[in-house]
């Protein structure tokens, strides 16, 4: 064994450990050597093209440049990922593909967008992404919301109005939904009466006497509900008060209640505790184009009224 090894040995390093343990000194494989030289050459070229070496309080900028528009002027500067990103946002392949549609949508009226299948297809696909990134956390990815917390946007019942313009204003400026708590103003009996009245408005079976008493509270000074909900109880979009005559509930969890008592309790709870909710304003976070696309998208979610 030992003999054979020494016979075939090309070269050894000359070190000997524990008496006879030796180390071969074969040349590196050819491909490896060339890969090494190639990477050295790559580094040299890289140093010339890109920002690399610190020099004093500055650094070599490299010879590659990137051009983009800034403030109406064309700026040409040395290559870096930030400049590259601006270029990509302005003239990248994907950006240009979208820009053609974006320009069309931005300059079109809502009526024109809604009646043009091509623009609508674009709006739906961009809108879905925007909605998922910004709105779904509250309103749900399909727009169904969470009863009591975040309104359903697909039911075509609106607190703040359902025209595209209304929805645009809602998204851009946000809203504070506010109804005072009545736990101090109304006692338990009165709460039950007015809750009966509210349920009667959407045709639920309720106690007639209670309803009559509730009517007085709702439409009189005691409750003053009509100031915000109107005498017809259809709600006012200027204060975002709910329409109480449809069977659609945004806050009171009536649909989930199994018996009449549960329904009453759900409505009473809202009246007792009041409502305080906030829809954030998006005008500083999203561009005007994005808000316009979202307004059309959300309008469509609600069936488009």
């Amino acid at each position: 064994m030992t003999d054979k090894q020494t016979d075939n040995a090309v070269q050894t390093t000359g070190h000997a450990w524990d008496g006879d343990l030796q180390e071969f000194n074969n040349p590196l494989p050819r491909w490896w050597i060339w890969a090494f030289y190639a990477s050295v050459a790559f580094a040299l070229i890289y140093w010339i093209l890109y920002p690399v070496w610190p020099v004093g309080h500055d650094y070599t900028k490299g010879v590659l440049t990137v051009s983009y528009e800034s403030n109406g002027k064309t700026v040409t500067q040395h290559w870096n990922t930030r400049a590259k990103y601006i270029e990509d946002m302005q003239t990248g392949e994907e950006s240009l593909k979208q820009k053609a549609y974006l320009d069309k949508v931005v300059n079109a009226s809502y009526a024109a967008i809604l009646s043009d299948p091509d623009m609508m297809a674009f709006t739906r696909s961009i809108g879905k992404g925007l909605f998922g990134d910004n709105c779904a956390a509250c309103h749900g990815s399909g727009g169904n919301g969470v009863i009591g917390k975040f309104p359903n946007l697909v039911d075509d019942s609106w607190l703040w109005g359902g025209t595209v313009e209304d929805i645009h204003a809602t998204i851009s400026d946000g809203h504070r939904g506010f109804m005072p708590a009545f736990r101090e103003t109304l006692n338990d009996e009165e709460l039950e009466q007015v809750a009966n009245y509210v349920l009667s408005l959407s045709g639920q079976a309720v106690d007639k006497e209670q309803v009559a008493a509730g009517d007085k509270i709702f439409n009189g000074q005691k409750g003053g509900c009509h100031y915000c909900h109107t005498h017809q109880a259809k709600g006012m979009k200027s204060v975002g008060s709910a329409n109480l005559t449809d069977a659609i509930w945004s806050i009171a969890d009536v649909p989930d209640a199994s018996d009449p008592k549960g329904k009453l309790e759900a409505v009473e709870q809202v009246i007792r505790n009041g409502v305080q909710r906030r829809m954030p304003a998006w005008r500083d976070r999203l561009t005007p184009e994005q808000i316009k696309l979202l307004a059309v998208y959300v309008h469509e979610l609600g069936g488009g009224k």
């Binding site: 910004n134 779904a136 956390a137 509250c138 749900g140 990815s141 969470v146 917390k149 975040f150 909710r277 906030r278 829809m279 954030p280 500083d284 976070r285």
Partner: peptide, 22 residues
């Protein structure tokens, strides 16, 4: 920051699936 309301953060941290089922 400022993307969601305080109420959303509170609810979401307490029970994320109550607002984002996925």
């Amino acid at each position: 920051g400022k993307k969601y309301s305080n109420a959303w953060h509170v609810q979401h941290l307490k029970a994320p699936r109550s607002v984002v089922p996925e």
